[in-house]
Design a protein around this nucleic acid. Structure first.
Length: 92
DNA sequence: TATCTGACGATAG
DNA sequence: CCTATCGCCAGAT
């Protein structure tokens, strides 16, 4: 077993695991909820390494989508019932 | 142990 | 509105 996650990764996974379809959080929110306030950048690192997480439910603090795949990101959010416009999340 | 990287955040121009 | 810069933190090498 070498694929064990660190405390930080486990905390992030737990937070995202609690999210449900239609729910959207920012990197800073996930970090704070995981118990690591200010570690928004580190959260991005977890989502990049671990693909078993609903990364599409995580958006930037400004409501902007992920610069990695904004097109795919918007499509996934749309399937969950989240509206997007021009790469931004539309609050409803 | 030191250094670099990065799905970020906020501020300045 | 967009680009640039600094600060932040954890992971990887």
């Amino acid at each position: 077993m070498g694929s064990e996650l660190t405390e930080f990764e486990q905390a992030v996974v737990a937070v995202l695991d609690q999210t449900e379809p239609g729910d959207v959080m920012t990197y800073g929110e996930v970090a704070a909820e995981a118990g690591f306030p200010g570690a928004a950048r580190a959260v991005g690192g977890v989502l990049r390494r671990v693909d078993d997480l609903p990364w599409w439910r995580v958006v930037a603090a400004s409501g902007r989508l992920i610069p990695h795949d904004p097109k795919r990101h918007a499509a996934l959010l749309a399937e969950e019932g989240v509206k997007t416009k021009n790469g931004f999340v539309v609050l409803d």
